[in-house]
Design a protein around this nucleic acid. Sequence first.
DNA 1: GAGAAATATTTCACGAGTAAAACACCTGCT
DNA 2: AGCAGGTGTTTTACTCGTGAAATATTTCTC
Lengths: 188, 188
Amino acid sequence: MTATNGRPVDGAARPTAPSATRRDTVAAVVGQWQTVHPDLDTGPMEIIGRINRCAALLQQAEDAPLRRAGLSRPEFDLLGALRRTGHELTPSELTRETFSSGAAVTKRLKQLTERGLVERRGDTRDRRVAHVRLTDAGRELVDAILPEQLAYETTVLSGLDDPGQGELATLLGELLVQLEGRLGMLRV
Amino acid sequence: MTATNGRPVDGAARPTAPSATRRDTVAAVVGQWQTVHPDLDTGPMEIIGRINRCAALLQQAEDAPLRRAGLSRPEFDLLGALRRTGHELTPSELTRETFSSGAAVTKRLKQLTERGLVERRGDTRDRRVAHVRLTDAGRELVDAILPEQLAYETTVLSGLDDPGQGELATLLGELLVQLEGRLGMLRV
DNA sequence: GAGAAATATTTCACGAGTAAAACACCTGCT
DNA sequence: AGCAGGTGTTTTACTCGTGAAATATTTCTC
C-alpha cells in the first residue's frame, strides 16, 4: 500500500520555478525530522503539514473582510449556503451544506436571527422541521461582502502565478474527490 | 492586481488524468455561486475552499492513530517539536514552533507534565524562563506513534498518484513561502 | 542603584465547538 | 387506535483555544 514517494525535499519537476525558492517552515520541520529519523518516509508531511499550515494562515488573513462585517467564517458559510442555493434550507440541510454539527448550526442560527440576517418559519406538514431563509438585509450583506472577500483572496493568492494556481486547484480537487469518497469507510 | 485566472472549473492541463474525474463538493459549491453571480471571479474559492475542506477532512481522519495514544494533534505537535529539535525548548519557543498561543501552550504543558511525557526545569540564569524536555516515556511515545502516523497518512493520500503528490507538495510549498513572507504585513 | 520599560510565563473570563441526552413530532406496524 | 422506533432540532455539560490582565523577573537608563 505504501507509496514510496521518496523524492528529495525540494527538487521539483515543475518547469516554471526559475530560481531560489525560499524554504517554507514545513520544509524546515520535515528536514529536522529527517535528520532525527532518516529512515522514515516523510512524504505525507509535506502535503498534510502544508495543507494544515496554509489553512491556518489563510484563515487568519482571509477573514479580515469578514470581520469588518462582524461575521465569522462559519457564519458567512451558513449565509452563503442560503444565498447560493437560492432557496430555504432546513437546519439539517445547513449542517450538511456547511459541514458542521447540528449544535453549532443551532447556535449560529440563533445569533444570525437576532441580528436580523436570517428568518425561520415552521413547516406546515411536519412540525419538527424549520425552514430558514435570508432576510433582505442578510442577502444584501452577503452580496456586499462576497466580492470584497473574493478580491481579498485573490491578492492573498497572488504570490502564486496563474498556471500554478490552476494546477493547485486541480490537484486539490483530485485529492478532495478521493478523500470525500473514501474517508467515510476508513477505520484503520 | 487581480489575477484573471478564469479557466473552466475542471478543464485541467495536467496530462496524467485520463478520464471521468468525479466532481468534488467545492466544485459543486463554486458552480452554484457562478449561476447566482456569473460575473464574479470564483477562482480563489477553488483553492482556498479546497484547502480548508481538505484540512478539515484530513484532521478528522488523520488523527485516528493519535487518538489511540490519547493525544490530540496539538499535543503531538508539541511533543514532536521537542523530539525533532532534539533539545530542550522554552514555552515561548514552543509557541513559535507549534504556531499556537502562549496560553494554549501553558495548558498543554500542564497536561503533558501530569501524564509524565514532559519535564520542566527552571533556567539558572534567568528565573523567568522554563526549559521543557521530553521524558523517556515521552520520547518513546513519539517514536512509537510517528511511524504509524506517517503510514496512515500515506494511505490517506494514496488516492493521488506519486507525481501528483510531488507537484502538490511543491505548489503548496510555493504558496506557503508567499503566505508566510507576505502575510504579516497585509492589512487590507 | 533605583525606578521604568521590557520579557517570559501564567491566570482569568469568555466564546465557540462537540457529543450525547433530551425533546418533539411523525410513521409504520399490528 | 396505540405504541415502537425513527427523524429533526435543541439543550446540556464539557473541552479547548484565545486575548488581555496579572505576575515575576531581568535589563536599561540616568
